[in-house]
Design a protein around this nucleic acid. Structure first.
Lengths: 137, 137
DNA sequence: TGTTTACTCTATTATATTGATAGGGTAAAG
DNA sequence: CTTTACCCTATCAATATAATAGAGTAAACA
């Protein structure tokens, strides 16, 4: 299940990407337009700023704005920040690898075998989609 | 994240599928061999029985056994029983469709757009893998 | 310089789900 | 009729998610 955090984050990014200019947009405007709890959105945008996707400006006329060209924002990166690992089990994760504590041998593990294929399929999608591709119309 | 339930369920199914004959196997044997809490596994196997994947036999010499040929057990079906919907949002789910309460229009929703592609990629994997494909060696 | 605006950060809370455990019940074998 | 092993319900701790509250701080602008 996709978390609300990721859902809201994607919507906010898309909203910013679909602006005509790249002027700062207030949190309140995004929250209202996308039906998101403003306070919750605040923390999401903050984490997107800290990870280099967004810039922010304080004071009057302030808000959040995209740092990069939407075409240069890969879904792999966005998903890893918002949702966490793309893999469904840590033992097939590229960026968050961890051995499963209960599994004696990954090479003979059926779950590992299946989830490796799932990971690759998902990576294929996320690698081939950028923020620009999410904009509709 | 893949739930332990699904993980254990897949391991148990694979264990049964890799038996030489199709004689009943005791829960305790599966649990021990796969490092699974026996009681937890009980409930998982029970749900797999109720959904037509497994048969069971009580009393001495009893246990669980596969109903179908492993080649005929599609991962789509197994995953839906164990893990639930394959889609990450209900609005792109084939078998568990539901409208998102916060989203006014699916056609212009960026999350919908992306998750549709993700769903298709995952379905492709699950449709092309059977229980027989999970057996290693 | 001072007031307003709007982002920043920490803390708290409600809710749901997951994973595990306990214990008694029941059908079947032998 | 006793043993075996599945069947079923209930409970509980731990964790993660989602939302909310409130005080703090930097910048704009008059």
């Amino acid at each position: 299940m996709l978390s609300k955090k990721t859902k809201y984050g994607l919507k906010a990014l898309t909203y910013l990407a679909s602006q005509k200019d790249n002027k700062p947009v207030q949190i309140s405007e995004i929250a209202k337009h996308e039906n998101i709890s403003q306070k919750f959105l605040e923390s999401i945008l903050l984490s997107l700023r800290k990870t280099g996707f967004l810039g922010s400006k304080k004071g009057k006329g302030g808000g959040y704005y995209l740092i990069k060209d939407p075409k240069a924002v890969l879904m792999t990166d966005v998903m890893r920040i918002l949702e966490g690992p793309i893999a469904m089990v840590p033992c097939v994760s590229l960026n968050f690898y961890e051995k499963c504590d209960d599994c004696p041998d990954e090479n003979t593990c059926s779950v590992n075998k299946l989830m490796l294929k799932v990971r690759d399929a998902n990576l294929e999608v996320y690698r081939n989609n950028t923020l620009a591709d999410l904009i509709t119309g």
